[in-house]
Amino acid sequence: MPSALTVGGTRFIGRHTVAQLLAHDYDVTTVTRGQSDDPFADEERVSNVQGDRDDRTTLERARDEADPDVVVDCCAYHPGQVREATDVFADAGAYVYVSSGSAYAREDVPMREGETPLHDCTDEQATDDSMESYGPRKAEGDRAVFEAAADGVNAMSVRPMLVYGPHDYTERYAYWVDRVAAYDRVLVPGDGGSLLHRVYVGDVARALRIVAEEGEAGEAYNVADRDATTLERSLTLAADALDTDVEVVHASEHDLARADLTPEEFVLYTPSPALVSTEKLHALGWDSTPLDVAVSETALSHRERGLTGGEYDPGREREVEVIDALTE
Rank of each mutant, 00 (worst) to 15 (best):
T6S: 04
T30V: 07
V31E: 03
T32S: 13
R33T: 01
D37V: 08
F40W: 04
F40G: 03
F40V: 05
R45K: 00
R45W: 08
R45Q: 01
N48R: 11
R53A: 00
R63I: 11
E65H: 12
D67M: 01
V70Q: 07
A76I: 00
Q81L: 02
A90P: 15
D91Y: 15
Y104I: 11
A105P: 05
R106W: 01
D108V: 10
P117H: 12
D120W: 07
D123H: 06
E132V: 09
P136W: 03
R137A: 10
F146N: 10
A149D: 04
Y164C: 02
H167Q: 06
R172Q: 07
A181R: 10
D191H: 06
L196H: 07
L196K: 03
L208R: 08
A212E: 02
G218C: 03
G218E: 01
A220V: 05
D227E: 14
T230C: 01
L235E: 11
L235V: 08
T236P: 01
L237S: 04
A238F: 01
D243R: 15
D243L: 14
A259G: 12
F266Y: 10
V267A: 08
Y269T: 13
Y269D: 15
S272L: 08
A274I: 07
V276H: 05
E279P: 00
S288F: 00
V293W: 14
A299S: 10
L300P: 05
L300Y: 06
H302K: 01
R305P: 12
R316F: 12
R318K: 14
V322G: 00
T327V: 14
T327N: 13
E328M: 07
